[in-house]
Nucleic acid binder design. Sequence first.
DNA 1: TCTATTGTTCGTATTTTATCGAACTAAGAG
DNA 2: CTCTTAGTTCGATAAAATACGAACAATAGA
Lengths: 101, 101
Amino acid sequence: MRELPYPKTEELDLPRVLHALSDPARLDMVRRLAQEGELTCGALGVDRPKSSMSHHFRTLRDAGVIRTCVDGTVHLNHLRKDDLERRFPGLLKVVLDAPET
Amino acid sequence: MRELPYPKTEELDLPRVLHALSDPARLDMVRRLAQEGELTCGALGVDRPKSSMSHHFRTLRDAGVIRTCVDGTVHLNHLRKDDLERRFPGLLKVVLDAPET
DNA sequence: TCTATTGTTCGTATTTTATCGAACTAAGAG
DNA sequence: CTCTTAGTTCGATAAAATACGAACAATAGA
């Protein structure tokens, strides 16, 4: 079960992570991943073309917010909760608890 | 003592705030404001032209991260700690405690 | 093998952001 | 009133991010 490249915990960069989270679409994706656990790309993006979704997944992955495992034809994404917590304690909770509008 | 316009606490928008904080220069400004308290524009930006600094101040102010009071010829900036804490509890602490690199 | 499914990559158009000089504004000092 | 100081606003340019169709790659299933 292959895994797409992603930064190590110690390499997580705050400005990069904040930027990844600063897009409303990506923030929604992160919230859903937090609620529903591991999700495929298709399960997350219905209202946008695949290529756009793929871009957002890449941005989140490159920033270190999510990890993607390739399982057959499906890509399973999950939040790097523990890694984020280790590097930026409390960040994820703050973001998930924040009012949506 | 005039005050430049800024969003109300209830209007603070997470993506907007995260974006404001996602720039390394602005993050530095926020850190310094947190450490040293109220600072003038000039006291914060030494390595960049005034117009660039003004842009960053505006971005932070429009996002609701800082507030700017005009006192004579000087503009005093300060972090909206309490407002941020009320709207996004813990956010500022997380950001300020995060490793710099 | 042929086909359908899942998602990435590429190319390009559009929008946003950043940067910086120059002109401008407001207030205080002399 | 004039000069200086502090910072904004304007205008141009460059860099980055977003969006999306089309072509491509990998795998599962018939």
